[in-house]
Amino acid sequence: MQKVLIALSGMIVLTIILTIFYEQSREPVPLPYYNVEQNQQQEESNTPEEKEPLVPIKVNEEDTIGYSLQNDELQMTYDDGNTWTTVPVEKDLLFQGEYQGGETELIENSFILTENNAAFLYSEGGIKVICSQNQGETWEESIVDNGIPVIRFRKIEFMDDQFWYVILSNNRTMSQERSLIYISTNQGESWKSINMPNTTRLVADGGFVDEETGFMSYGTINPEAPDLFVTNNQGETWEQAVFNMPSQYDRVFVIARAPYKEEDHLALIMDQGPNGDYYQDGLIRAKFISTDNGHTWQFAEEVVPENEEMG
C-alpha cells in the first residue's frame, strides 16, 4: 500500500514538473490566419520594414546577375539575390516618357547590367545615366542631354571603356518623331550628339558595330519594307542600306534590328512587324548578312525563334 502510494505521488510530482517545463517553453498560440493577415497589413502601414523577399529578374538566364523593382526601388544583385545593392535613382524616373507597362521590369535596352558595368538610363529634367563600375559600391551620374523632355525609344550600350552610346527618340506626333544618338568617349563625363539620317519615321532600333559604323532602323507602324540607315564615319554621312529581298519575303520581313558582327561580316535579324502573319503567327524572322560594312544585305536564312512555342 505504502509503496503504491509513494510511486503514485512520485508520478504526480513528475507531472507537475513536466507541466511547468511545457508551459515555460510553450509559444503563445498564434492568431487565426485571417486575423494575422489583417494585423500584418496594419503593421506594414506603420512600419515599412517588413518586406517581401526580393526576387531577382535575371539579365541572363544562366547568370547570377539580376535586378528587382520591388518595394518601389531599383536594386541589383550579383549573387542570385543573396545580397542587394540599391541603385540611387527613383523608380519612377526610369519609366518617364512614353512608356506603357506595369513598371515590373526595366525597359528593354534602357540599362546595362554586367559583371563590370551597371548603368541605368533615366529622365530627370533631361536625360541622365547613373552608372557604377564596381558593382554598386560607388555611383556616378552623367547628363546625356539637358533639354530632352519626353522620350520614347531609348537604348544605352557600352562598346568598350572608350565608346558609350545612347539612342533616343522624342517629340513624337502620330508616326513622326526625332531620333538622336549621343556618344561618350570619356566614360560618361561628356556626351555629344551626332548627325542623324534625314528621316522622321519612328525609330525601331539602332546601334554601332564599331566606333565608326553605326545603324539606325526605322518604321514601327505598318512598315512595308525595311528602312535601315548606315554610317561609316560616326554619323557624318548616312546612307540608306539596300536589301536584296527574295520576292516571296517582300512585305513580310520589314523591320531590321540593329546589326551585329559575325565572323568576317555583319549580320542582322529582321522582324515581320506588328501585322506580320507569315507562317507561325509572325514569329519567324529573317537573317541577313552584309559583307560590305552594312551597305548591301543578302538574305541568309529564316530564323525560328528560340524558347518560343511553335504555332
Binding site: S9, I12, V13, T15, I16, T19, I20, E23
Partner: peptide, 13 residues
Amino acid sequence: LLYIFNMIIAVSL
C-alpha cells in the same frame, strides 16, 4: 490556471 492546478495537486497530495 496551470500553476494553480499544480499547487492544488501538491497540497492535496
